[in-house]
Design a binder for these strands. Structure first.
Lengths: 210, 210
DNA sequence: ATATGCATGTAATGGGTTACATGATTGT
DNA sequence: ACAATCATGTAACCCATTACATGCATAT
């Protein structure tokens, strides 16, 4: 019988597709066609930080080596006087192809998020309520700054059609962070409005009511 | 001379604080005081999935072993007839302490998110616009389902004061996912409204306009 | 019968970070 | 003079996932 013995990666040396998303992020940044060094790539990756975590520079270099081995990028040594040489990378047509395939065919994955502030809110019973309010307020402030940054970026880029997609993303980001700010503030209000079960005499912890 | 030779992890066998956030998630789930098996813990962790990724079960078991070695949890073997024994874990007072310290003292970190749909939107130039619209619509649908789930959970728990904090988190989640839905739909509208730069004659790709 | 849920774990591998390393240039 | 920026890379580690492994019980 012809049995499909679970075609998993590692079968034949180098497994064609199924790259980690970081690879696609790097490929994507090169998909505009210009040549970029690892250093520049890292800086560009930081622009994605609003909706995608930014890998460490060492990771970018590792990624580039991998992509080159797969034939998706090539590099060229650029000699510079009075500066260390740079190695600029360019996407190959094979790279363009796999990137487009990913764009069009990859399944729609849910966001993966690690929201440590909300995690702390969830476990609010175990902490100091005052401090929790501070944490939330602090978070709301941080978010406000991000919104300002995004508004700035949005204005800069929404003129030119060249940045059409990034502009749409910036708008998305603004909506997202505004929702975060609202949520944090609503949460604070909920904490304030809570009918406290020992208002004045406090000390619910290690007190009599064990 | 008393020199602080960079107290980094790995110095003295087991490094007091600075646990990964997953440890705190596990500790938090045990901070209610009940005994839980690794299996139950995994299921509880899945409830955090709306705002915190859920680790693999093997990771939970590994985490429990680590926490036990640190003295933050203890386990007890529970014999069951006609069923494999279970090992239930309980938080220790040392564990409660470090957890509370984390709750009150940990710095307010920004969310770390990997939004692959937005990543694809950002690189929209490299894909099929029709397909991108589909992806966005698909995402909006998935988000709608999450919202329904959250609404259900919210109604269930918002009665009892016992689930005060989780209820606040559920509300936050609803606000967040509603913003996501709106953002996805706004993005679709932007794509639709875009003044297409070659509407009828198409073929901007590998055509003459190189 | 077969699948699904309960329950626990190990092995292999991978993705990623932090710290270590080096070295020149430009700005303060 | 010192710090910051450009630029590239390695080593050590660790967090985490996937797959492998086992085995009983209940529901379909």
């Amino acid at each position: 019988m012809i049995e499909f013995n679970t075609p998993r990666r590692g079968d034949s040396g180098q497994d064609a597709d199924r790259l980690p998303s970081t690879s696609y992020a790097v490929l994507g940044m090169l998909s505009f066609g210009d040549e970029l060094s690892g250093y520049q790539l890292k800086k560009r990756a930081d622009n994605l930080r609003f909706f995608y975590w930014s890998p460490a520079h060492s990771q970018i270099y590792a990624e580039l080596r991998r992509l080159e081995k797969l034939g998706y990028v090539t590099h060229r040594e650029v000699k510079q006087m009075r500066r260390p040489d740079k190695r600029v990378y360019r996407i190959t047509s094979a790279g363009q192809e796999v990137f487009e395939t990913w764009m069009n065919e990859a399944p729609v994955e849910p966001v993966s998020l690690k929201h440590s502030v909300v995690l702390r809110l969830f476990f609010g019973h175990a902490g100091n309520p005052e401090r929790l309010r501070e944490v939330l307020a602090d978070y709301a402030d941080q978010v406000s700054e991000v919104i300002e940054d995004l508004r700035g970026i949005s204005e800069e880029i929404s003129e030119s059609d060249q940045f059409f997609y990034p502009a749409v993303v910036a708008e998305w980001g603004i909506g997202y962070y505004e929702a975060e700010r609202r949520a944090a503030m609503t949460a604070i209000r909920r904490l304030d409005d809570r009918p406290e079960r020992a208002e004045s005499q406090a000390e619910e912890k290690d007190a009599d009511t064990a």
